[in-house]
Design a binder for these strands. Structure first.
Lengths: 230, 230
DNA sequence: GCCAGTTCTAAGGGTTTTCTAATAAACAAC
DNA sequence: GTTGTTTATTAGAAAACCCTTAGAACTGGC
């Protein structure tokens, strides 16, 4: 078995480290996030085979992370941890798409059993599970599911808008000329006399930057546009 | 004898763990679900050789799970557990297709005897029980038996409709282009000039989404289609 | 060969997306 | 500040895209 990667999102440092140590002895590679936003970003930006997710967390809570990850990575197995007495969590957890849950405190062997069960199941679905997720600041662009979100807000883009944003985010930090955009996002023999790029940059700004303090699309007069934080 | 896999669906943690421990000593591999939805999902998505099913459960109750599993996995043996005094349960249980039942509290040797009897019977039937079941929200697609259900309603699909739905559900959450669908569900040198994909998406929607509040097939204009909840 | 069920084609009308074109605003250089 | 150039914004025309339907072509069982 190749080395499976597991992300533990749990604010109780002792519990997190116990789990982590135990799983490493079982031959897993583990990472820990002690806080919600960090956990979500790690899960989105790296390739994990499974997430262990506590419900009560500082920052984003477990429910929100679970719903969000389901949207972004439909096949990533998630095991939820709930504190004793939060019985309703089970139903909630499943509604949100968790694959399994465990009530704390739990026996460590039970955890590994569930992990192995989840991984086996996910291996059986031999579809290519590779999801491409691109990120700048709090903007998340999922190329596979064609979804975009800024912070917690989901944003609907048309095909052309998405193509433009995808090109910008793949070249984040770099100034791209309107000619570049015309050739890459529209077609190769692109008419320079049109202002369609400006129009679409405007559409994107309305959807992505308008309601937010921090602007991500910047104009470099005479040069082109950049997507970056700052 | 290779290691048989048994799923225990029982909300009383003490009972569940006693059974589990005992069966493990007998050489079985066991899993526990303490709640109904979880139990059903585990039973559907993994390969078990036998289910031990309590009747009163949080979430889905034992009756509902039993009826559902019978439909999806007709050959999966189910042993029901009933509390003392719930005599009617026996009749109910058998009506719903349980293979055997036990009244709590019971002698552990009696349980193993019944388990072995059930397994022997099911081995004799010698049916290859590899069932592949895919799920999104309340839509259940059994690839092995070619059956589809949405909620409690059974849905008849033609071969082409089923192939299309299977491809969509295997790629749930992912936007698949009409070209993809044409190549994967129709044939590899697919004529892009035809609108047969639209027509079949329309057929599927009529059968799967039309009578339901929550739509599962979504159009992303200029990109393709997605199967997902919400 | 006939029938029932299934698959596909073709055409319409409706919706959404894309682009154009014209005006307003911002910018850069003097 | 003035001027010329570049960019932003808007509305509406044009195009692309998608849905729906009816019926033709095909299929397999009898």
């Amino acid at each position: 078995m190749d080395n499976k990667r597991i992300l533990i999102i749990e604010d109780d440092r002792r519990i997190a480290q116990n789990i982590s140590r135990g799983l490493q002895q079982e031959g897993f590679h583990t990472e820990i996030a002690y806080e919600g936003y960090n956990g979500r970003n790690l899960a989105l930006s790296q390739e994990f085979d499974l997430i262990i997710l506590d419900i009560s967390l500082p920052g984003l809570n477990g429910y929100e992370i679970c719903r969000n990850l389901r949207e972004q990575k439909p096949y990533l197995p998630i095991i939820m941890l709930t504190a004793l007495g939060e019985m309703e969590d089970k139903v909630e957890g499943f509604k949100l798409g968790a694959d399994d849950y465990l009530v704390k405190p739990f026996d460590f062997r039970e955890l590994t059993a569930r992990i192995n069960a989840c991984l086996r199941r996910s291996d059986m679905l031999n579809i290519h599970k590779h999801e491409e997720v691109l990120q700048v600041a709090d903007l998340v662009v999922n190329v596979t599911t064609k979804t975009v979100q800024r912070g917690t807000k989901y944003i609907e883009l048309t095909a052309r808008e998405f193509a433009l944003l995808e090109y910008l985010i793949r070249n984040k930090g770099r100034v791209v000329s309107k000619m570049d955009l015309g050739e890459q996002v529209w077609n190769l023999n692109f008419d320079p006399g049109t202002n369609v790029v400006e129009v679409y940059i405007n559409y994107l700004r309305k959807k992505i930057d308008k309601d937010f303090q921090q602007k991500l699309i910047h104009t470099r007069s005479g040069m082109g546009y950049v997507l970056k934080e700052e």
